[in-house]
Design a protein around this nucleic acid. Structure first.
Lengths: 164, 164
DNA sequence: GTTCGTGCAAATACTTTGCAAGTCG
DNA sequence: CGACTTGCAAAGTATTTGCACGAAC
């Protein structure tokens, strides 16, 4: 992924920062992950490569990479902040509140909303992030069953008591 | 706002919880705020009414109100979590990254995306939240000027040094 | 040599928990 | 009485900061 390294370096330099080994490693870890990583996960994977890297560096680096738009931070419900490579201007998630399966939705999902908001409200340099949270079909059915259970339970329990 | 109190109470009871004075106060504070409130802001306003209410209660109550969908928690960029009354199934924000002005966008913004996702992915009980972050027109122009400044600055500064 | 980055340890901030006492049904 | 709540203090976590040393420009 030579072009990725090149552009990271260029972007950092444009802002007066350097692409240090640590920053490079952290970017790589995030790049290689299929989905999003929490701070802890990033820390863990970085330390596998070099155990000396400190947590403060991870915090500082994520902050810095965010500030130059190389990565994006998302807050999904009931989760710590997650980090991912910021490759487009939009990114969307569909999440199950129970099993936490996460589906990445296409950037085109919202059509021309991007331009629409920019012209309508005079905003510039917009980035959009949609979070859709609910229950996937599986979990939904499981929940329904649990609910049914709870409603039936009390009665039989009383009967059994009298058997004693 | 009698109907609001009634329904809050009913919803809490349905889940086996009580509408205590503290919970009522916290709901009220959030309800009355025009926009979103952080935990600190909620704490502050609650304490104005009753200084004895403890921070843990605020934390516990927000958690509980979230769990029964009476309030919603949003994470806007570079901000602590914010809380608001959850009155619909969707809620959207347009924020300036510089001055943090926040525009609330209409629930209808995304059209039938809600149903579309539910049928397409088999999800249930979906809630959507869109965060659009960028720069408002004012801040954008200010930034452009600052950028121009920075490019010109270094030269004059050197001249002045020689006056000493 | 000056600025930028890092590791380490300490300091801060944020959030959760245990428990005794109070309230409601 | 038994389940639900709360305030307070303590424990836990998470995040930020100060500083001395090393690397890059």
């Amino acid at each position: 992924m030579h072009s990725f390294q090149q552009s990271s370096d260029a972007i950092l330099r444009k802002h007066g920062y350097r692409l240090t080994p640590q920053r490079h490693m952290i970017l790589n870890v995030i790049q290689e992950a299929q989905g999003h990583l929490s701070i802890d996960q990033i820390m863990e994977r970085v330390q596998q490569q070099n155990p000396c890297v400190s947590l403060s560096t991870v915090y500082r680096t994520l902050e810095l990479l965010k500030s130059v738009d190389l990565i994006r931070e998302s807050h999904l419900p009931d989760a710590q902040p997650l980090y991912e490579i910021a490759d487009g201007q939009a990114h969307h998630h569909l999440i199950c509140r129970r099993c936490h399966v996460t589906i990445h939705l296409d950037e085109t999902l919202l059509g021309d909303l991007h331009e629409q908001l920019q012209t309508q409200y005079g905003f510039h340099h917009l980035s959009l992030e949609l979070v859709a949270a609910g229950y996937c079909d599986n979990c939904w059915h499981t929940l329904q069953q649990e609910l049914a259970q709870d409603n039936i339970d009390p009665q039989p329990t009383l009967d059994i008591v009298s058997q004693d």
